[in-house]
Computed example of a mutant assay.
Amino acid sequence: MNHTQEDIRHNWTKEELLAIYNKPLLSLVFEAAGVHRRWHNPEEVQLSTLLSVKTGGCPEDCSYCGQAARYHTDIEVQALLPTETVVAHAKRARDGGSTRFCMAAAWREVRDNRDFDRIIEMVKQVNGLGLEVCCALGMLTESQAQRLQQAGLYAYNHNLDTSEEYYDEIISTRTFDNRIKTIAHVRDAGITVCSGGIIGLGESRADRIGMLCTLASMEKHPESVPINALARVKGTPLENNPKVDIWDMVRMIATARIAMPASMVRLSAGRLEMDEVEQAWCFMAGANSIFTGEREKLLVTPNPAISDDLDMLSRLGLKPMGKTW
Rank of each mutant, 00 (worst) to 15 (best):
E278K: 01
A231L: 00
E203Q: 05
I180V: 15
D248H: 05
K181N: 15
C194M: 10
L238V: 08
E219L: 11
I290Q: 03
L212H: 03
I198P: 01
V265S: 00
I191V: 15
W247P: 03
P302D: 02
T182F: 05
E223I: 10
M260A: 13
R232F: 02
I199C: 07
G293S: 10
R266K: 14
T175Y: 10
G197T: 01
R257W: 09
I183W: 07
C282N: 12
C194L: 07
A189I: 09
E294K: 07
T192R: 13
L212A: 07
R208D: 07
I253G: 00
E239T: 08
E276L: 11
C282E: 08
M260T: 13
P237E: 11
G235K: 08
M211A: 09
P242F: 08
V193P: 06
L230Q: 01
M274K: 04
I246F: 04
M218K: 06
K243C: 13
A231N: 02
K297G: 03
H221D: 02
I253C: 02
E278N: 01
R208Y: 05
R257A: 08
A229R: 07
D245I: 02
A256E: 05
H221C: 04
W281V: 06
I199R: 01
S263R: 13
M211T: 06
T192L: 14
A256C: 14
R208P: 12
I227P: 00
E294I: 10
F176I: 09
I290H: 02
R205V: 09
R232D: 05
A256H: 07
P237R: 10
G196F: 02
E294Y: 07
R251K: 00
F291N: 03
A184H: 15
S217G: 12
V277F: 11
M284L: 15
I209Y: 01
D245M: 03
F176A: 12
S289I: 03
N241K: 15
G190C: 12
L201R: 05
I198Y: 05
T236D: 13
I191S: 11
P242H: 14
L299D: 00
W281F: 15
L298F: 13
A280W: 01
F283C: 04
E239F: 06
A254V: 12
P222F: 02
A285L: 08
I290T: 04
D177M: 08
S204M: 13
D245F: 02
G235Q: 10
A231H: 00
A254S: 14
T182P: 09
A184E: 15
R251D: 00
S224Y: 11
M211V: 09
I199P: 00
V300W: 01
A206R: 11
A206G: 05
D177P: 11
E294R: 08
E219N: 11
L201E: 06
F176W: 15
I198N: 06
N303L: 01
A254D: 10
